[in-house]
Amino acid sequence: MVRLLRIFFRLQLVQLRSALEYRADFWIAAVGAILQQLVSIVFLLTFFGHVTSLGGWSLWQILVLQGLVMAADGIREMFADGVWKLRADVNDGSFDRVLVRPIPPALQQFTALASIHGIGNTSLGLVVLVLGLARSDVGWTWWSVPVLVLTILCGTVLTASISFLTNMIAFWEPSAQSAFPTLVALMRDFAKFPLDVYGAGIRIVITVILPYGLISYYPSRLVLGVGDSPGWWATTPLIAAGASALAASIVWRRGLNHYQGVGN
């Protein structure tokens, strides 16, 4: 286990070094990624220029939601972005290499890409989060920070599992482009705003099917003290992370079996 972790970080380091070979590209990608996130911040700031509360949430409280989602996804981008290369690898046969090495194929796939520019998103997310927390009236307790940290880490697991799962379509439909995984990944933007404003349909989807809400809205309500929030909501990130990781590993195994059954 320790050995696998060590190899994981070594492989990531290799990708990092590769990425730094192209320094200009790193900055452009980082700036581009940040600008994308900034769009929703700009929207928020403009929006709150005309409105004082959204579904009972203040601007700063909503920034907490934004920050949690951004940070979680940023970390995922740094460490597990290789899954977006799965389709290309399956199609050109590079995936075969993964099967003849004595380390788990999933680990190899995670480290297949260097998206170290994810650090931009992570930093922005943390800044936004801290800003939001500072300006909200938070009743700090001993568990506030641990819950927030747990939320971000579980958020990383969730976004990584979902992007992993959706990219596995490549096993069954190698010609499918990455439009579908991108679409699903983008649905996390719903969780950047309080779920109270949405209709019932979306609330259910974002809570149960694509549980982005479990790593932003529910824990935030608890920490920020918005409305009545039962204590067990502190565990929703764990539920989301656990369930999604389980689903991903089950489908991954199926996908591997399929690949070994039909080749490419």
Partner: peptide, 14 residues
């Protein structure tokens, strides 16, 4: 430059 995605993201956002 080489990184097209970064440019596209920036342009889309702006």
């Amino acid at each position: 430059t080489l990184n097209g995605m970064g440019l596209m993201w920036s342009q889309q956002a702006i």
